[in-house]
């Protein structure tokens, strides 16, 4: 143990260093804007009187920021549920129903795993224009679902395929319909994989910038876009930027701390298998 003391100390320092930048953002958001121009956030440690909630009050009174937070939720929730529902159905078919060209189609899904979404931005923008949904929230949601599907189907199919065959055969012999088997057998047994997929997709969509930047008009823009639009005057807008950034992190951090185990397992399922 004594021999390991330097290691313990060094790792504790590294762990703290990893947290310091995030703490710095929080404290920056808790100090008045004028102070950012003249002194570092760590001054607040010795001068706690600098701490104020003014910046947070200001952004929560700002219609634009509140609107963008609501938009983030309006985009993220349906996009996460949509991916899970649509991918689970497809994954069940790929795992347990025999149909022509099944393997070829699934190979296509595997190929789509790494397609950069840049390959779709221009044509989909035009398609949305034709359909009259360019700039709308539904357009952003559909795009997120489509590009979330390959990974989601891949993950869930692998998980479903690992469920013992006897369970399914028994249900089929009992005459249960495929939909019934899917709802009563597959979904409950697949819950761990579905949960980690949902968490992933939630974080992914909540944190997205590019898709919203292209497809959402200002009134429908999420918080990431709202922050990005303030960046040109970084020092001048630091009160809004830092407070909004921190607020945008709260929900992902809660999700992270509540479901950390699922998240780590999902990473493995998605990448190692």
């Amino acid at each position: 143990m004594a021999r390991r003391l330097p290691l313990h100390v060094a790792m504790a320092v590294v762990g703290l260093l990893w947290l310091v930048p995030t703490v710095g953002l929080l404290v920056t958001a808790l100090r008045p804007r004028e102070l950012f121009a003249t002194s570092g956030w760590w001054q607040a440690i010795t001068k706690p009187s600098q701490i104020t909630l003014d910046n947070f009050e200001r952004i929560l009174e700002s219609d634009a920021i509140v609107r963008s937070l609501v938009n983030t939720a309006l985009i993220t929730v349906p996009a996460s549920l949509g991916v899970v529902a649509i991918a689970a159905l497809a994954a069940y078919a790929f795992a347990w129903i025999e149909f022509p060209f099944r393997d070829v189609i699934f190979l296509g899904v595997v190929a789509m795993l790494v397609v950069p979404l840049q390959m779709a931005l221009v044509p989909v923008a035009e398609l949305y224009g034709t359909l009259g949904i360019f700039g709308s929230i539904i357009g952003v949601v559909l795009f997120h679902i489509a590009f979330g599907l390959p990974f989601a189907i891949f993950l869930l199919r692998n998980f479903f395929a690992g469920i013992p065959k006897d369970l399914l055969e028994a249900a089929r012999l009992d005459g249960a319909s495929e939909m019934r088997i899917f709802l009563r057998v597959m979904l409950p047994l697949g819950l761990p994989a579905i949960a980690s997929l949902a968490i992933f997709q939630f974080l992914w969509v909540w944190n997205d910038l590019l898709v919203a930047l292209v497809f959402a008009r200002t009134a429908n823009a999420p918080i990431t876009v709202a922050i990005q639009s303030q960046l040109r005057q970084f020092g001048g807008n630091i009160d809004i930027i830092s407070a909004a950034s921190f607020v945008s992190m709260i929900i992902p951090l809660i999700v992270f701390f509540a479901f950390q185990r699922y998240l780590a397992e999902g990473l493995l399922a998605g990448s190692v298998k």
């Binding site: 590294v14 762990g15 990893w18 947290l19 930048p21 995030t22 710095g24 953002l25 920056t28 956030w41 974080l203 909540w206 944190n207 997205d208 910038l209 990431t224 922050i227 990005q228 970084f234 630091i238 930027i241 830092s242 950034s245 921190f246 945008s248 992190m249 992902p252 951090l253 999700v255 992270f256 950390q260 998240l263 780590a264």
Partner: peptide, 18 residues
Amino acid sequence: VFMPMAISLVAGGVIWRV
């Protein structure tokens, strides 16, 4: 060390800008 994975690259970028 794992925590930054949960936050957006936008927020992470702002953090490092500071």
